[in-house]
Design a binder for these strands. Sequence first.
DNA 1: GAGTGCAATAATATCGATTTTTTCGCAAAA
DNA 2: TTTTGCGAAAAAATCGATATTATTGCACTC
Lengths: 226, 226
Amino acid sequence: MNIQPQIDPGQEPSATQRAYLAVRQMILTGEIPPGEKLKIENLRKKLDMGGSPIREALTLLVSDLLVERLDQRGFRSAEVGRENFAEILKLRCHLEEMALRESIAHANQVWEDNLVISHHRMMREPRNNVERFEDLHKTFHMNLLAACTSKVLLKFCNQLYDLNIRYRYLAGRALDYSTRDIGSEHTAIMNAAVDRDTETACHILLDHYQRTGAFLERLFTSEAAE
Amino acid sequence: MNIQPQIDPGQEPSATQRAYLAVRQMILTGEIPPGEKLKIENLRKKLDMGGSPIREALTLLVSDLLVERLDQRGFRSAEVGRENFAEILKLRCHLEEMALRESIAHANQVWEDNLVISHHRMMREPRNNVERFEDLHKTFHMNLLAACTSKVLLKFCNQLYDLNIRYRYLAGRALDYSTRDIGSEHTAIMNAAVDRDTETACHILLDHYQRTGAFLERLFTSEAAE
DNA sequence: GAGTGCAATAATATCGATTTTTTCGCAAAA
DNA sequence: TTTTGCGAAAAAATCGATATTATTGCACTC
């Protein structure tokens, strides 16, 4: 019998996978602006593949709430807005707290090691490569929750993370964290987590989100006032 | 300009939509058992359509967590299990409580009317048509939350509801509610909701879920012991 | 007799073309 | 001037066929 055929990372990704990652990245970074029509033909040419994998990728993105499907009228990237941002922030705080408590409760050595490693990598990454940094940042936050045993909860947290990241890209340069010491906040969360200090870890994590959230919301307000 | 072209219910559904609803129903009711391979060719013949809408429907179901995709190896219906059931129950309790509080906070006349109507219809439906009853039951519960302003939260609740319903069908005849007065529980929840009595409504709702959960869990245990 | 490698088979993933539906522009009527 | 009703163009949805990839069975070696 084959040994771990499903974990093999060597195989090249399917067209669907490529399309999914490509379109997702374009939406997250804002290269495709909110509300824009996603024409199959355009994406076909841009990504050089048939229509089927494109459609399938867009369908996957619909469930991520990054794309909306209009029956018989194709797809468009999801709209953004202040209310949407606020609800995502609120849900994230609730669900990530649940997940973090579960995660610390089921913590083990492997979890701890991965957490420390991802923290280290994130801290060492220069901030000028935004996409690369955001990737490591996400990995760190997800590793924090990784020992949580509820697959569904983790999926929700993951989805919400991506929905949120979009707003950070939209905020763009304004959000270079220059006014806050984000690094030390992350370190504090990690330390509390490895100490199995659930209350402290949750408190700092939520505070971390609330602050970033308030920052983005202010930005949103001033922009809307233009 | 057209008037409300998107709300028009008269148009016949797309093939994708038909496939989605058909396969979803088969999985929820257990006609397709957990873990079963979903072969495109079989479904093609059964639903009399091409492969594309089938694949698209299955992709939609992946995001509902009712179907799993095995890269390059097709699709299968999601597995069930006691842990899975437990995590869904727990998440539902958390999220529906959030949603119910929000919903009551934003309650208005339309919401109240719809809630009363759906309650009435559910109560009048004879229990022998299980699928029809389950449909009305879901409508009632979703109407309870409908005034909640967070679209994402409602989507999550909806998903979790469907994941849970599967276990009720799996339990089958055993769960005919004969030992409990489910009707009065629903009525009590509705009354508390229309009275805007948030605490009572939440309390009864959660109790309602916990009881049904405990009932199903017992069933699971005795079955696993065979 | 157990394991290995290779073809035959089956199933998936993808493509290109066709069908259906929507959108858009323009002219005719109110 | 605004509405209404075509028809052309564009786009989406779907199909059937092909290319790719996994699975299966069987002969062959050790």
